[in-house]
């Protein structure tokens, strides 16, 4: 999957990201929303709340609860995907929620609920990383107190080499895939999953590469948020 010049199938080098575009505030009726294009991924994230929890007994007296729904549209995959949540979608909803809970100041909104909806309109490799980036943009847009923004980016192993940001094909045919979500200012990893076999050195290299990739995603996310809230990107 990597040719003799070190070029991958889609023309990238080992440490290159796919093109990323983020737009903040795309859904009028949501409290916060964002749209992300991460390679061929097209994902919308929407945040509603904090709002009163219903049924009331699910609310916690000292902090907010987060409810997350990651869903892939039936037309998002090459072959039609039945609309009901699959095992994979339930898992991703959970890991996204856990990542978010480490960033949100839940204690600031006791007895309430924060609803987060993630809809994948078109899927490619690394959709959970793209989703967490979109979700953090949407949370920042809603004005919910957050310790830090979260960005996500995967690393993997193809043809025995550690590479950044796997596409769908590389993910399926490669030897390993490791999505990492990261809080850049606090230098903390909030999501790490791993599938495949790495040696210890490869793992260390992969983490470093993932953090490098995440920092690049962070710059794009920052630009998108500044553009929404301050109009221009140039510092005044």
């Amino acid at each position: 999957m990597i040719d003799e010049n070190g070029i991958r199938l889609d023309g990238r080098r080992w440490d290159e990201l796919r093109p990323i575009r983020i737009e903040v505030g795309v859904i009028k009726n949501a409290d916060g929303s964002a749209y992300i294009e991460f390679g061929k991924n097209k994902i919308i994230a929407a945040v509603y709340g904090p709002r009163e929890a219903h049924p009331k007994h699910i609310a916690l007296p000292d902090r907010a609860i987060v409810r997350c729904r990651y869903h892939m549209a039936p037309f998002s995959t090459e072959e039609r995907k039945p609309p009901q949540p699959t095992r994979r979608e339930i898992e991703i909803s959970l890991v996204l929620r856990r990542a978010m809970e480490s960033a949100i100041f839940l204690e600031e909104y006791p007895r309430s609920i924060i609803d987060v909806y993630v809809e994948v309109l078109q899927s490619d490799g690394g959709s959970r990383c793209a989703s967490i980036t979109a979700v953090s943009a949407a949370l920042a847009d809603s004005g919910i107190s957050m310790r830090d923004l979260i960005v996500g980016c995967a690393v993997g192993k193809i043809d025995g080499q550690i590479v950044l940001d796997l596409s769908d094909y590389e993910d399926k045919e490669g030897e390993g895939d490791m999505p990492v979500a990261y809080m850049p200012n606090l230098d903390k990893i909030v999501l790490l999953q791993f599938d495949g076999i790495f040696t210890e050195e490869e793992f260390k290299k992969a983490i470093d590469l993932a953090i490098l990739g995440n920092k690049r995603v962070y710059e794009i996310l920052k630009k998108a948020l500044i553009e929404k809230y301050f109009g221009t990107v140039e510092e005044k």
Partner: peptide, 30 residues
């Protein structure tokens, strides 16, 4: 933006919309 470092040696209680980690003061909001 959320997570931006505002002050690296802040003493006292964090003002509204910020939080403290050690002596560092970070932003919570845009």
């Amino acid at each position: 933006l959320p997570g931006d470092l505002l002050h690296d040696s802040y003493t006292g209680i964090a003002p509204p919309n910020t939080y403290k980690l050690g002596n560092k003061l970070f932003s919570l909001k845009v």
